[in-house]
Simulated scan of single mutants.
Amino acid sequence: MAHHFPVRVYYEDTDMAGIVYHANYLRYIERARSDWVRSLGIDQNALRDAGRVFVVRRIESDFLAPARFDDELDVVTETAQASGARLVLHQEVRRAGERLFQAEVTVVCVTLDGVPQRLPEELRRPLH
């Protein structure tokens, strides 16, 4: 099931040509992942207080077309693969259905000391 997260491109997001600066796509997909986790009922603050956090292990991305100042974007997040401690997500940034950016993001659950942990049940349950 796809999760949708709206983003408006602000002036501060762009370079001198009025095009979204490449690193900001990573910010957009991070916000979308956080919102997706929240929508599943997972409180990341409580998870951290219990000694577990999510960290990005790997990102493979493609820049397909530019987004520009004042565009209304949709960040789409879908699960590609899930295992005990690892989750691979496919994320796209779209404008009116056109794909502008896509990424495969591997996220892992670890202790505060970096030791891998199983994904929370609340996250695994809807994925299977």
Rank of each mutant, 00 (worst) to 15 (best):
L119W: 07
L87N: 07
R118T: 15
R99L: 04
R99K: 09
G41H: 03
E12I: 10
E72Y: 07
V53N: 04
D71I: 13
V56G: 06
H4T: 14
R124M: 12
Q117A: 15
L100C: 15
A23K: 06
D74S: 13
V110F: 00
F63E: 00
E30R: 02
H4I: 15
D113A: 12
A17R: 12
Q81E: 11
L123K: 15
F5K: 00
A85F: 10
V56M: 07
V53H: 06
L73R: 03
F5Y: 09
H3D: 07
R95G: 05
R52F: 02
R57E: 03
A67E: 09
S83Q: 12
R124L: 14
R68C: 15
R27M: 00
R57Y: 02
D62M: 04
M16V: 10
G18V: 03
T111L: 02
R118Q: 11
A46Q: 05
D13Y: 00
E104A: 10
R52E: 07
H22M: 02
P6H: 00
A23F: 07
V76C: 14
T106P: 13
P66Q: 01
Y28D: 13
R31S: 04
V9M: 01
Y25I: 06
S39W: 01
T79P: 08
L47P: 08
R94G: 04
Y28S: 10
A85W: 13
H128P: 13
R68I: 08
H90T: 14
F5I: 02
L89D: 06
P6W: 00
L40K: 08
L47C: 05
G51A: 04
L89E: 08
E30K: 01
V56F: 10
R99S: 06
R118W: 06
T14S: 07
M16E: 13
A82Q: 13
A17G: 14
L64Q: 07
A2W: 14
R95F: 02
F54S: 04
A32F: 11
Y21H: 15
F5P: 06
D70P: 04
